[in-house]
Amino acid sequence: MRAIMSSEWLKLRSVTSTYQAIGVAALTVVLGMVWTFYVSGLADERGSLRAAAPEQGFLPLVQISLAVLGVLAITAEQASGMIRTTLTAVPKRGTLLLAKAGVVAAVTFVAANSIIILTYVTSRLMAGDRHLQFNESSVANDLPMLLASGLSVTVLALVGLGLGVATRSTAAALVSVVSLLFVLPGIANYLPAPWNTRVAALMLPNLVPQIADQRLSRRLGDGFLPPWAALLVLATYAIVALAAGFYLFRRRDA
């Protein structure tokens, strides 16, 4: 297992797509600075305003770029046929998938948290003591939200990996990830009450504030799920996608 993980780690490190995915995700830091610069200017004119925290506002960029990393970890092999070479070296498919999942999880967790924390720190430093609302709560208060955000990125990357294994197609896996992140939550909002809130509470992006025990949104109000349940639902997304991938991966001819 250790040997296979070290191989998978090298696989990620030795292709440019990994650096491109992390690079795009890291644009969040720059966008966060631009945003803070903009709202700071407004605050200097008006005195105070309610601005969204950049690490929350730009979180979808981190989520989608690193989900791409998870998808490509398997679909790049399937598209090139490299998967057959890999399976000749590692015929135990469950072990291979587990090693891939472990490496994708570790890389995306470290990358996402670094990006989120860097965005957090630079924006707060730039904001100084202006009244922008997002910079007025304590680090201890913000920490659950930051950790939940980082965790959601890792879960999305694992969902991408699982769906990539299952669909064997980069496009199909990416469309599924985008649906989970943007399309389904949008649809859930338009369900008749009380189902809009009930379903929306289970949507992947809405789990982040619920894990941090914060309001879902102005319209949806407080979440339905206590933090532990939201965390469980988040993990379930990754587990279900990986289990589906594993089931098909083990049965299918390579």
Binding site: A3, K11, S80, G81, R84, A89
Partner: peptide, 27 residues
Amino acid sequence: GALLDASAVHGGRSAYNHLLCLARTND
């Protein structure tokens, strides 16, 4: 040892890294 399809490699990886990825799995 088997060679089935020579083009079944990731084009973005160097020859050395390609082989090292395989080598690591089998110590």
